[in-house]
Amino acid sequence: MNQTMRVKRKARVETSVCVACGCCVKVCPMGALSISDGIYAKVDDSACVGCGKCAKECPASVISIEEVTA
């Protein structure tokens, strides 16, 4: 397991202010988003490619694209 650390971009939802409208789910080209129990949006990190479409669409602007090391 000598994989080098790589920086990847992933969507992050500030769940406490998410209104669970689902606008982000509709625009995600990877199907990486889902609304968890009608309360907030959840990102599937393994599917998210960090394109930022969801962040642009979110009416509450509660999604940011962050760099994570994987």
Binding site: V19, A20, C21, C23, D37, G38, I39, E57, C58, P59, A60, S61
Partner: peptide
């Protein structure tokens, strides 16, 4: 603001989210 800004303060959206919170 954004196209669907109404969804942020829509009473039906807020209410259904509250019901979901109560259910889970």
């Amino acid at each position: 603001f954004k196209p669907r800004s109404w969804c942020v303060y829509c009473p039906m959206g807020t209410m259904t989210q509250l019901i979901c919170k109560a259910k889970h």
